[in-house]
Structures are given as C-alpha cells and as structure tokens.
Design a binder for these strands. Structure first.
Lengths: 332, 332
DNA sequence: TTGTAAGCGTTATCAC
DNA sequence: GTGATAACGCTTACAA
C-alpha cells in the first residue's frame, strides 16, 4: 500500500492525498473524507522511510548505554522511552558492552540512520573523539556519564552529595577506617564518586582515614574481589562505602564467604538503591534516587534541544537521599 | 555529505561510487581507491534511509515488550540486541506498558518503519487482532508470551516443568496446603504457570490441596496484596509457589509486616531466579533459567526466518532447573 | 570498466 | 482546491 494506491482509490492525485492525510492546505471536505476513507479501507501506513528521506527528520532518537540489562540503565531507558514516545519519537537502542570502540560504532550507525537526537551514557570517550564522530550534527544529551564540554546537556546524579552522606553516616557510627568499592574510573559516576570519597574523607582527617580503595568495574564479581582485597589489608576497614549496589552485593557475598558479619564486623552502605534492598540480609543502607526519572529528564532535555534551532546546553544534577537500613549498623 | 559529493570528489559517477563502496561489480583498483579516499576524507556516511527506501530492507528489527525495565525483559533485550547486532540488525524498541492498545500501536509504528522483523512478548493479543495489524507482512518471533498459531516461531520457558518442580519440592517438605501467587492471566507465562500449578497439585490430591490462588499482575505490590489475601484465609497455605520473583518479593514483604516467618510459618519458592536471590533474607528457592539466552534464541530464530523465503515456524521450550535455598525450608 | 536513467514513497513548489 | 513535477539519497538495470 502506497500513497499512490490511496490516491487512485480516492480518485485524486498523490499530492492531494498527502495533503488530506496530513491535514495541510485547503481542501474540500469531500475529498478529505474520500481520501481518509480510501486510506482506512486499504489499511494504508505511510512509509516513514520515504517520509523521512523527504523531510529529513526521522523522529527517531538513538539511545546508547554500556549495558541495557543493568537495572539502572534499564530503568533510565524505560523513562526515556516513555517520554520520547509521548513526544512522538522512536527509540533506537544501542548497547556498547562497556567498550569505547563499540560506542563509537554505535554512534556512527545511529548517524547513518539519521536519528534526530542522541541520548548517551558514555563509557568514557574523550571529547575530540566524540566530536569527530558526531561532528555536532545532531543534538546530544548525556546522562549518568558525560563528556564535559560536549553535547547540548546532561543529567548527572549528585555523586558528591551522595558519597558524602554515606561517609558521614559511617563516621557518625564511629568508624575510623573506611574503604571504598570503586566503579569504572572512565565513567563520570565512577571517578566522581571516587573523588567525592577522597574529599569527604579528608574533611574528617586525621581521626578518620581511608583504609583502601579497590575496584574498577561495576560488576558484582568486582565487588566481591575488591572486598576480599580490602579485608586482607594489614589494617582492614571497619566500614565500606560502595559505589553501586552491584558492588555492594559482591561485598556481601565476600563477607559471607569469609564469615565476616555485616554490620558488626564490617558496616556497608551503597550509592544506588534497589527495590529489593530492604529484603536483603542485612537490609542495605543506600543513597537513593529515581533512575527512571533521570531517563525522563534526559529525554525531556533532548526533546527540547531537538525543537530549538540553537539550544543552549543545560546541565542537571539529580538529588539523592540517604535511606538507612541495617547494613550500616542502624537498627530497624 | 551525500554519495554525489563523494562521486564528484573522486571524479566518477554516483553509480560507480556506489559500486566501489559496496564492493559490487568489476571496477579498476584505481577508481575503487579514489572513491574510498574521497569517502574517508569527506567522512561519508551513506544514508540508511535512502538505502532502505531503495532496497526495501531496513536491517532493523522491532522489539516489543510489556515493560523494558523489568529484569527479565531487560535481560532478554540484551541477549536479543547482541545477537541482532552481530547479524547486522538494529533494534527499535517499543514498551507497551502492559497495554494491549499500546502494543497494537507499537506494531503499527514498527510496520510503518518497515522493520524487517518483529520480536514480541505479547501482553495477550488475540490472534485475529494480531494478524489484522501485521497482515503477515514481516516475520515475527514471540518470546515468553506468544500467540498460538501466529508468527514464525516462539521461545517459551518450560512453565509446566518449572511449576511442577516447585510444587513437588514443597510436597517433599511435607506441605499439604499450598497456595499460588499468580501473574497476568492473559500472558502465556501467566496462565501456563497457573494451569501447571493446578495439574501438578492434582497429581498429589487428595492428600495435598490448593489453599488458594491470588494475583493477576507481575508486580511486587500485587505479590504483597495476594499474599495478604492468602494468609487471611480460614485455612491458609503453609507454603507458597510464586509465579515470579517480583511476586515472591512482595510475598516476603507481606510476611515481614505480619510477623510471619519464612520458611517456618510459610515456605516460599518462586519461578524465576534473580542474581540477588542468594542474598535475600531468607535466600529464595527458585526455578532458574537464563533470560538473556531466551532473547538470544528468539533473535536467532528471527534472523533465520528473515533470511529464508518461506520459513517454517519453530517453537522452542526453554529448560529450567530448581535451585534450593533457604526459603523453602532447605538448610544451607 | 564506467555512466545514464529510472525508481523506491513521500512532500513541497508551483502552476492551473 | 487540486494536479504535475521535482527532489530527498541511494541502488541497479541497461547502455556504452
């Protein structure tokens, strides 16, 4: 079914049919109805392909993340998808599997598809490389992990405040040697949380000291390994700040293996809440936020950027809050 | 940058440039190189739009699910995306938010985009409606939830075996009144698990009886509500089979509120494993499988179907296995 | 070995 | 009001 078929059936020209269907121009009610009828009868679906080629706008947005199956990205995707859908955009998904090369490849594919905008959580591309690939051809909004100076906006969590909340809480519980389970150093949330940990700890020096920092990936496995490392130090930490739930879960596993009790032998608190955190053993104290909303916010920013001719970059910081449960030593 | 620009720069015609770039036809090495050079210098990215319009193949697949942010779908998406990417396909994502209307809308959008194939986990469309919308225009593979008699294949979990494993295990522990936390009755995994529960229980009758069945949605909230309902029965169950982790988590929450101890007062076991199941309090006994692999399998089936002219429908059942942990009463 | 021309299905510009 | 016609950027007969 093409527009031509509809036009023929309605006894008009293709251009008239197009106008009727798109409600453009002055048309007699009769022809308008005739075209609508024909379209309905033939179950006409205009080819977005042809339409896009002609109008050079695809109403499609590229979404690039390191790993869709991670709860955070899945939730952000959901939020973004919903917002984009409501604004009339489709979502083309790219999972770069934590690889910079694949991320670049993904961006190229997306550009080849002439997406109208980009939503990306970078694994840590440097600015030149990014600009070289995209050439500023389409608006791009970063979320969770950004490239400073690039793009038309970003939505990043308040990593500094979150980590500070965690550190301060441990200190209030009386801990003096605290360790950090760190994530990928090339991603914004990875290095910002690490840096935040160091400054937050510095504010409590010299009474309180960094027992150690371990981990370079966002996985449960890495959390387990890092915890094992930290616990085998000469002066092991009595409390751990985890940069993510995944890492914290790994930490819990490690403790279980070693017979280390949480929170008695080792207190634990993580950046990132999970819907099941309360049901863990022990319930995990965490810094929480709405991952879905960061996706929504990023998508909104992008929709705005796509509709303006010369959008000014807007950078959002997302608030976080502490939820105390059992793993830090709080009761109840 | 269009192909015409590249052609001009290389001093050849557009068709020659096209052939050179696509490695088709007999061309002199010189022109081939000249075109490649020009393309590189100009950073030429062929428009997939124009290409698709011409060749009427988009190398794009539509992925439709009730909720991307649910761990199962997110994992399936990941697997599918990976497999599709490796086969040269892009993934267009649609989240229908558990609504049949939105699912239809999603299918229409996808068809308007002329996707080459469909990967869908239906919320429970009836066959006529589905056929009417798609008209068999593109190959479709269902996963997790299918429409019998439609599509070119499906990948469904072995719901019957899984539930039987769960029921039998409870019975082995000596339970005589067992309840079911049920999911959406319009989805394959919802009604199959419910039916499987009834037949599995029937095999143990009359010594063992169904204490009750509650729940119509896949959410944690529903699990909590359903558990509350079942526990308030005159003859409440001593064991619960949950149709999903989410429901089970809700059940755990309900028990906690009521002061009901798991597994002492109520044993619990779920269909669906979670990577954090072991760390819950108590660790959740579950029927496990690889959600990511069901996505991969479905994608493989689809890729195959898309490359054949007259694909025969292939239906796969995915194996599951029981993992006993503390929530059923097993120790360690 | 390479160029010309047609066409994929739309929409936009211009006549009538 | 409505209809030709061109154009979007590419591929592919068919010529040369």
């Amino acid at each position: 079914m093409t527009l031509a078929d509809v036009a023929k059936k309605a006894g008009v020209s293709a251009s008239t049919a197009s106008r009727a269907l798109n409600g453009r121009g002055e048309l007699s009610d009769r022809t308008r109805a005739a075209v609508a009828d024909a379209a309905r009868v033939l179950q006409f679906q205009p080819s977005q392909l042809a339409r896009s080629l002609r109008t050079s706008t695809t109403h499609t947005v590229g979404f690039v993340v390191p790993d869709v199956s991670s709860p955070f990205y899945a939730a952000a995707l959901k939020g973004a998808q919903t917002t984009l859908h409501d604004a009339g955009y489709r979502t083309l998904l790219m999972d770069c599997e934590q690889s910079a090369e694949r991320e670049i490849e993904a961006l190229q594919t997306l550009l080849a598809h002439r997406v109208d905008g980009l939503l990306v959580s970078t694994v840590g591309l440097d600015r030149e490389r990014f600009e070289e690939v995209t050439g500023g051809r389409v608006p791009c909004v970063f979320f969770d992990s950004s490239i400073v100076g690039s793009g038309e906006g970003s939505v990043i969590l308040d990593n500094h405040a979150g980590i500070e909340l965690l550190v301060d809480h441990h200190v209030e519980h009386g801990h003096r040697r605290i360790g950090l389970l760190a994530g990928s150093p090339s991603e914004t949330s990875g290095f910002e949380r690490r840096a935040a940990f160091e400054t937050a700890m510095a504010r409590h020096a010299p009474e309180v000291a960094i027992a150690g920092i371990a981990g370079r990936e966002w996985s449960l496995r890495e959390g387990r390994r890092a915890t094992l490392d930290l616990l085998s130090l000469d002066e092991p930490p009595t409390a751990l700040v985890s940069s993510s739930v995944e890492l914290a879960l790994g930490g819990m596993l490690a403790c279980r293996e070693l017979g280390v009790r949480i929170p008695d032998d080792l207190a634990l608190a993580a950046f990132d809440d999970a819907y099941f955190a309360e049901l863990l053993d022990p319930p995990l104290t965490a810094v929480a936020y709405q991952p879905r909303e960061v996706g929504e916010a990023a998508a909104s920013l992008l929709v705005e950027a796509m509709s303006e001719d010369d959008p000014e970059a807007r950078d959002l910081r997302f608030e976080v809050r502490l939820i105390t449960r059992g793993s830090c030593g709080c009761t109840g």
